[in-house]
Write a protein that binds this DNA or RNA. Sequence first.
DNA 1: GACTGTGAAGCCATTCACAGCT
DNA 2: AGCTGTGAATGGCTTCACAGTC
Lengths: 214, 214
Amino acid sequence: MKTLKIPEATIIRLSVYSRYLSQVDQKGVVTISSGEIAEGVGVSPAQVRKDLAYFGEFGTRGVGYNVKDLHRHIMKILGLNSEWPTIVVGAGNLGTALCMYRGFRERGFQIVAVFDNDPAKIGENINEVTVYGLDKLAEIVEKEDVKIGIIAVPADYAQEVANQLVDAGVNAILNFAPKVINVPDGVELRNVDLTVNLEILTFNLGTQKRNSQP
Amino acid sequence: MKTLKIPEATIIRLSVYSRYLSQVDQKGVVTISSGEIAEGVGVSPAQVRKDLAYFGEFGTRGVGYNVKDLHRHIMKILGLNSEWPTIVVGAGNLGTALCMYRGFRERGFQIVAVFDNDPAKIGENINEVTVYGLDKLAEIVEKEDVKIGIIAVPADYAQEVANQLVDAGVNAILNFAPKVINVPDGVELRNVDLTVNLEILTFNLGTQKRNSQP
DNA sequence: GACTGTGAAGCCATTCACAGCT
DNA sequence: AGCTGTGAATGGCTTCACAGTC
């Protein structure tokens, strides 16, 4: 099978393109060029074309891309043509915020349950999502056919929770705990470290000062 | 001045190394090799050495690195040897979660104020941080010497808020709104898009299935 | 004339492999 | 003997430039 490897950077950009296209579509625009997309999201036109070319020929030479078609294609590529039942582990501040975050549902990620070990929280509702004890994890993952788990617990519990998610049958994990965790082959893992991003800013502020006389 | 360009990936890893080193330090370990760091954070030993080599010679050949020294050096490189007063704009779920998030304060990012336009929220306290109207932005940025602003408002307001932050004198912006925003040269900008990360997972789940017969 | 799709070139980051120090 | 620091080699992503299509 001809599966040339796709750069992760390309996937990130496709995700950005798709959001931009849905904005443009809502304005009623029918056709768009790689240059206009590039302008709208801050990359080069060649980059846009190259990214799309990994997956097929979606445009018309001399004309551009049909906005609706291209948007639909990208959503399909990203696997967003169907719903993804998702769970959050950790009903603290971050976990609660994630449950309430609208952006997830808008893109097809429906949070079907939250898990926490604090008895005071179990049984409560966060934005119509019920908090369960971790002992219910496997049961709900199976019943709701959950493939994606989000870890929003303190760093010290992250690995343990990851293990439980894997055992329960989850295939993909988004980890918000600032700790490196290990998962078996075949389980997808991504880490979002909120402080890393602030630290890149402070690093850049430091070098900026250093380079400020041209 | 000899300022060879540092890859951003290196900065991200330095941030991860520093957290790992503080864990190791707390266990009382005095010396560590590039191989052990690599093992602990999931990269190659050569990568660790290369990353550090951009900034100087911190190790001892034949021995390794002194944990405390290396940690201190990396914190200095990242600009984390002093406190960074920080503000959050948007007192919704995400903004509230960010204010309550302990990880920020642990690394020296102190959130000194939150801003929102909702009169019902103004004057309230979130985790000892007061919510102000946006009209107080410039005043507080100046008074508290704030360099970093975090945007946690809906996508449609992100650019407007970014402009106000820049006008108020903020040098660095962390944007959580799923929208491309523009800032003038000299202002550092990073975007954290929570849904992008989920979408990379779903993309990978899709290709995984496709490649599953070896 | 305008814009896509794509091989080739250029550029940047990672890995290799070994000299140099303790 | 063990481990760092680093030039050289590799691999991968981005940009260039142009042939192909409408």
